[in-house]
Design a protein around this nucleic acid. Sequence first.
RNA 1: GGGGCUGUAGCUCAGCUGGUUAGAGUGCCGGUCUGUCACACCGGAGGCCGCGGGUUCAAGUCCCGUCAGCCCCGCCA
Length: 586
Amino acid sequence: MRSHRCGALRAEHVGTRVRLGGWVHRRRDLGGLIFLDLRDRDGIVQVAIGPEWTPPEVLELATNLSTESVVLVSGAVVGRPEEARNPDMATGDVEVHADRLEVIGQAELEALPIPVWRTKGEDPPAEELRLLHRHLDLRRPELQRNLALRHRLLQRTRTALTSLGFYEIETPILTKPTPEGARDYLVPSRVHRGQFYALPQSPQIYKQILMISGFDRYFQLARCFRDEDLRADRQPEFTQIDIEASFVAPDDVYSVLETLFLALWDEAGHSITAPFRRIPFHDAMEHYGTDKPDLRYEVMLTDLSDVLTGRGFRAFDEALSSGGRVRGLRVPGGAALSRRDLEALTAVAKEAGAGGLATLRRKGTNLSGPLAKLEGLSAEIAGLDDGDLLLATAGADEVTSRALDPVRRAVIARLDLPPTTAHAFAWVDEFPLFERDPETGAVMFAHHPFTAPHPADAGQLLRGERAGVRALHYDLVYNGHELGSGSIRITDAELQLRILELLGISKAEAHQRFGFLLRALRAGAPPHGGFAVGFDRVVMLLAGAESLRDVIAFPKTTAARALFEDAPTDLDPAELNELALKVDNA
RNA sequence: GGGGCUGUAGCUCAGCUGGUUAGAGUGCCGGUCUGUCACACCGGAGGCCGCGGGUUCAAGUCCCGUCAGCCCCGCCA
């Protein structure tokens, strides 16, 4: 039907006849001469309609053509006059002199509540309208580009992992509910009245079974479902690149993932280098206050207890004597921040739970700020060069970390510090295996209950100690975003039972919930481990999009609603009855 | 579950301490126009001011509730 795509035409096509299909992006009717911008997924080309080359009936058609209608155009590709070229368009050196025009799909005005074409600088239509009229929103070149990139990244994932010896294997979408972790999306069974499937939160157990079955290396572009409240970077259904490999240690997993990420970033036009940096969890918390530090910037947290206590600042001295520390940031050039900026930083710290944020600015030899009156504190002792700023807060490490991470990011933003690199990847490892619920004090999984303990901490674990036990768990962090996480799994059924027991899950309960995994582990399990990449987030970052909704064709709203197709919906009583369900709207 | 922001013409927005006929740009309709590319110019139509209640002589504007979208906290092993 077509000879070319609109966006493909170039100077080399001049002199050829083409047949194009596309949407009327814009129309400029100059009276005797009409220009159409014809759009398809590859781009836009100008179609010129004029009495010298266009028959009168086609001219007539073009005069009444509405934007967003679908047309088939035939004509000759001609070079534009020198002064009429458009350097901002990929096809701007040429145009198509149309002599045939068929209107295939007339776009009715009422069917176009939101514009596809948008004036430069104008805000996009409300998100609600964009989602409601998704078929129109998706016509916009940005979203076409984003989804094209998503496609290329998916294909690159397949080729990269395939050439590393991975098999793509699908796992069930209808699976077994898991009481731990996120809430499951549940699916009632018609055949087994009163029983339910769950949609997978991830294919975790299935991929372990595949390793035990001897497939050696598995990946899947897995759809996952979690019934939890949404965020800008969280959708109820999402895609992860799910990976598992046998006979591996963490280094082997890192190497696979580094190869994959080199390929993905290359696909988006970025050259990055491996191996990635490694940071133990403890160091990340100590130097950045978070387990997903943005390592593009050099500013780091430091322990200021020695420097700032014993000098008559009561809040600091008290924190130290009750087991806390004074921690903060030395910010080169930070003295340039205004008083208003410093107040804003203090607000950030307090918002994050700090008691306050004390400041010390050095300009020349002059020290100013609340810390300037500390006894015997000099610029040298404080470690400040001319123009530097010191920020400090005191308390338990959890409190100061939680506060100083956002303070650090706010300082970087306010000073507009230059990044030392555009792409800062790092592995964060040596996570604790357990964590405590801050309210109940109960011990919980820090990750999932199949994560292997660090072999160096096996002794502690055997003695029943839990506090300092590390896990063979790792996160991949990029520019302050967590791209994914993984671990080496437990392959010993006895150890698996013991870990579950430490978490208060009895043997009987363990068998009821995870029996199929335990049974498999007893049948000869290879050492194995893997990783899961948050694919939507990767696409979002590489596309430069601000929301996951801009890299997902049909996303949900923050209330987990699908506006375009209007889901979820009520069911007929007959349908409910068949599923043995009653809706109680009390 | 909690907090914040937003809701005015098809779309994007303005609308002051409550005051007479609710505006702009764009799109749309009609007209002029042969080198535009945000075409230009002339004219026109277009409003449940999200919804419900209240205060007031008077509400787009103030108050209460509610719905929707977005952002954040909790949550997301």
